[in-house]
Simulated scan of single mutants.
Amino acid sequence: MTDATIPTIDGDGSFAAYVARPAGTPRAAVVVIQEVFGVNPGIRRKCDRLAEDGYLAVAPDLFWRIEPGIQLDPDVPEELRHGLDLFGRFDQDAGIRDIEATIRWARSDVEGGKVGCVGYCLGGRLAYMTAARTDIDASVGYYAVGIDGLLEEKHAIAHPLLLHIAGEDGFVPPAVQAAMHAGLDDLPKVTLLDYPGQDHGFATELGDRRSPEAADSADAATKAFFAEHLG
């Protein structure tokens, strides 16, 4: 496990990223897209697990323009509120450009091989946007927020996308879940998986939000999805 510095697309700066490498030659690369809590221990553990599965995993610090290096614990109320405040201040279009820069960096590192992404919460939303706006080979979003407002971009999704939906998600109410299904179920490149009774954050690696059985089920589906589409 190391840290990397990735240059921006337009050359106006650079940002840090956490990198986990497999023991041997990477089978592909996966960009891990943070929640509103930064590249915290849970996100780094996601990277480590992907490396154990043979992938080069890289988690860019997408909040570098507002609070570089921030790491928050969602189980601490003050830190949860701080994360939600950062969400409101975050430039999502700039974030997608930083993800694109990370994709380019990762693709170079795996010598032109395939690159996927997986994101959580805000990162799930950004994974959807990445699928629609970049050349990513496969994308996964967990409990993505606000997808109903991005459905006009769905026809630009050229490569496989998997979305995990928490049935009792307080940030993604039933009407939004219904809109996601109505807008995306007929797209051959998109798969939606529902987890009835689960709340937002059920697949976090650490903390009170984790629901082990549902997390293991979702993670197994993600693992199979990447094996099929990345190798």
Rank of each mutant, 00 (worst) to 15 (best):
G112M: 05
R125C: 10
P60N: 05
G170K: 08
G112W: 02
G88W: 10
V58D: 01
R27V: 10
I43Q: 03
G149Q: 12
V115I: 05
R27P: 03
V39T: 04
T2K: 15
L230E: 04
D137H: 09
Y120F: 14
H155P: 13
A29Q: 06
P60L: 05
A203L: 08
L56D: 00
Q177P: 05
A166L: 06
A214F: 10
H82S: 13
P22C: 05
D75Q: 14
D3C: 15
Q34K: 04
V31I: 08
Y142R: 01
G69E: 07
T130A: 14
A28F: 01
E228R: 12
T102W: 02
R44A: 07
H155I: 14
A28R: 00
F37Y: 10
L230M: 10
E67W: 11
G207H: 04
R210L: 13
L206T: 10
P173S: 04
A23V: 12
F87V: 13
G95P: 01
Y143A: 04
D85N: 14
D73R: 07
E79K: 11
D48F: 06
T102M: 05
I136F: 08
I43R: 02
A106F: 03
L62Y: 01
D53Q: 15
A221D: 14
D12R: 14
Q71F: 09
R44N: 09
G119D: 03
I147D: 00
V145N: 03
A182V: 12
D10F: 08
L184M: 06
C47N: 00
I99T: 03
E152G: 15
V110G: 02
W64T: 02
V190I: 11
D199F: 13
F63V: 10
T191K: 09
D12M: 13
A16Y: 08
M129N: 13
Q177D: 09
D137Y: 04
V30W: 02
A127K: 03
G95V: 00
H159N: 13
Y142W: 08
K189I: 15
E111N: 12
Y18L: 06
F226M: 03
L50H: 02
K223M: 12
